[in-house]
Computed example of a mutant assay.
Amino acid sequence: MGSMPRSIWKGAISFGLVTIPIKLYSATEEKDISFRQVHAEDGGRIKYKRICDKDGKEIPFSEIAKGYEAPDGRMAILEKSDFDDLPLPSAKQVEVVQFVDAEEIDPTYINKTYFLEADGPGAKPYVLLRDALDKTGKAALVKVAIRSREQLAMIRTKGDLLLMHTMLWPDELRDGEFAAPASDVSVSDAEVTMAQSFIEALDGPFEPEQYHDDYRAALEEVVNAKLSGSPMPSEDSEEAPEEAEVVDLVAALRASVDAAKKRREAAKGESKTG
């Protein structure tokens, strides 16, 4: 088992007159491969200096502040204390402002996911909120300030846990109408029926563990080969099928359905013999 993650925030959920002390933990971690910028000739690391554009001097972190530049060029310089002393009621208190059906919230709003853990005497009221949400099928809409930023968030249940999904504000979501096809584009009933057949051919329960990051695995092979001086891994010799220009959607979908069924049968055969 891995080490216990560190909590990134401590506060309390205000559930009416009930207070639930909690700790917050990141529920996700990216598994991407990280690289350093280096000199291609000798592998030396590339370093960047923090230079002030007024006096040309290198500035230590202790002297760097955050500045907001107004449209007219004026600069407002904010210190750490300015952020710490913001008059936000949500700074350490997560107040439930509404209960909603989780299905009502467009997934585009969801930003990050966190685990909530009861802190100290918070176990009993934690279970109370969890079970109440479970029985009503609702999620709690809250406001919370994390890392100097107030955010809308949704608290919902998952098994024995309470999860919190921070959300974007409505004005942070772009209008995607520009990407919609023209209103005069239409498809036939036969084409829709064939598309439904393709969906049914690939229909199944969501099992995320069967999917893997092939790009990361291939990149790790290349990195390991470079480190060990081994021959570079070769590409898969199988040629990708050429994509023909789609003229007849029904015929293309029918071929897609046949191919999907064959893949399903092949996968079942492998699982039986594996």
Rank of each mutant, 00 (worst) to 15 (best):
I46N: 11
K143T: 00
E150P: 10
G159N: 04
D134I: 05
G43S: 06
M164E: 13
N111Y: 01
C52T: 08
V246F: 08
R50M: 08
S148R: 02
R6H: 12
G11H: 07
A139S: 09
S81F: 06
G176V: 12
P241F: 05
V250K: 00
K57E: 13
P107E: 09
V223F: 15
E220F: 12
P5A: 15
S230M: 09
D160S: 11
G56L: 08
D131E: 15
L88R: 07
V142E: 04
E245R: 06
E177P: 02
G269T: 07
A190T: 10
K31S: 13
E221W: 10
G120V: 11
E200C: 00
P21D: 04
K23F: 06
Q98M: 08
R74N: 15
V18R: 13
M154W: 00
A123K: 13
S34P: 01
F61S: 00
A217Y: 02
F178L: 05
A195E: 10
T136V: 06
K272M: 08
L86N: 07
A123S: 10
E41W: 01
A252C: 03
W9E: 14
V18D: 12
L173Y: 13
V223R: 11
F61M: 00
L129W: 07
P121H: 12
L161W: 15
K47E: 05
A201R: 03
K66S: 13
A27T: 06
A139N: 01
V185P: 03
I105H: 10
V100F: 01
E29C: 10
K124I: 04
H212C: 05
A255W: 02
E242M: 14
D214V: 09
M4E: 10
D258C: 09
G274S: 14
G67N: 12
D258L: 10
E270L: 12
K262G: 09
T28Q: 15
F206M: 03
V192M: 01
S34A: 04
D53I: 15
D101A: 15
D236I: 08
Q196I: 01
L202V: 14
K31D: 02
A139H: 00
V222I: 10
D189Q: 07
Y48W: 14
D214A: 04
V187K: 00
I22L: 11
E270T: 11
T273S: 15
M75V: 12
L162F: 06
L133G: 06
K31L: 01
P71N: 10
K261I: 12
F83V: 02
I20R: 01
F115L: 14
I20W: 00
S237L: 06
E172A: 15
E221P: 11
F35Y: 15
L116M: 05
A40H: 07
V100S: 01
V257L: 04
A139C: 08
P87K: 02
L78M: 07
D175P: 05
P89Q: 09
F178A: 05
M164H: 06
D55M: 02
D171E: 00
H165Y: 08
Q196E: 01
E172K: 08
D236E: 09
A180H: 02
R216M: 08
S7R: 03
E242P: 07
S197A: 11
A267N: 14
Q37P: 08
